[in-house]
Design a protein around this nucleic acid. Sequence first.
DNA 1: TATAGAATTGACGTAAACGTAAAAGGTGCG
DNA 2: CGCACCTTTTACGTTTACGTCAATTCTATA
Lengths: 153, 153
Amino acid sequence: MKLVSPGEAAANSNDIPAETGEEFVRIGEMAKKYGVTLRTLRFYEDKGLLNPKRDGSTRLYTRRDKARLKLILLGRKVGFSLRDVKQMMDLYDPTGSNTKQLRLALDKSEKQLARLQKQRALIEDAINELSNSMTIVRKMLSERAAPQASAAG
Amino acid sequence: MKLVSPGEAAANSNDIPAETGEEFVRIGEMAKKYGVTLRTLRFYEDKGLLNPKRDGSTRLYTRRDKARLKLILLGRKVGFSLRDVKQMMDLYDPTGSNTKQLRLALDKSEKQLARLQKQRALIEDAINELSNSMTIVRKMLSERAAPQASAAG
DNA sequence: TATAGAATTGACGTAAACGTAAAAGGTGCG
DNA sequence: CGCACCTTTTACGTTTACGTCAATTCTATA
């Protein structure tokens, strides 16, 4: 099993496998590549979201892992919990049509979309309330500025 | 010190103090009135946001406490942390102009408003990404529905 | 007086997604 | 050889705003 040394990988970052069909990266590279921490990758693995191979105790990530990580990050971006992401991923079957998986994903997505829209409404509410309060405070301050210019502590 | 019995208070919910200038309510009423739990009120007190009087060990809330609670709830609604709320409230001085308090509140509000707007942007981003994904998934499902109508598990 | 309904303090639990040591093993390089 | 650097596992810490007992006491009412 041949790996890429840190130096090589840094210089040769065009991911074209020379001859072998598998390209492995260790955790440090993986983390850098996707802007996550080592802790995060180990955490995802601990939660069953990733399953890198091992060379002894060293984790080796393949492009399969990369694809999965991308999905995880997309999921997190749109607000899914890791549990949700796992549920959806667990249904993936490379030999099937994955209809079940897609349906679940769609179902969860609809719910998540609703949550997001509700959140947006709440935030807009908050923005309005806050803006109103600010207007009032500004008025109070300007009224208070005229009467007495000193001892404002 | 005369209090209002639960029965009386329930029946006589028009908050007009008969003769005395002070009206006390206990924690249960206070909670019901503002839609919070007992735990919440105790928690706020523990954090120094409320300071009800005591009759022995029983908490007695006055309208001052009610005013403060209203402010707390407004603060939470617009996304301030309890710490922020406390900082602002701690500056309140009934004998002064409260310029300092108002300035702090305005300052914090501006920052909070910025945060809220950023959040809204993030959520809208998420909504868009999610919608796109959903469109794709729907396509995949519809493509997959035609070829084979059976064994979709 | 018995009993139900409030109230008290204390303290651990929760949720999510990691952060942050700590202690130790492996590896390439000069 | 020895140092620097990467990696490993284990496990407690962080954050916020409470929830949820538990054990006890107080009060009102029938």
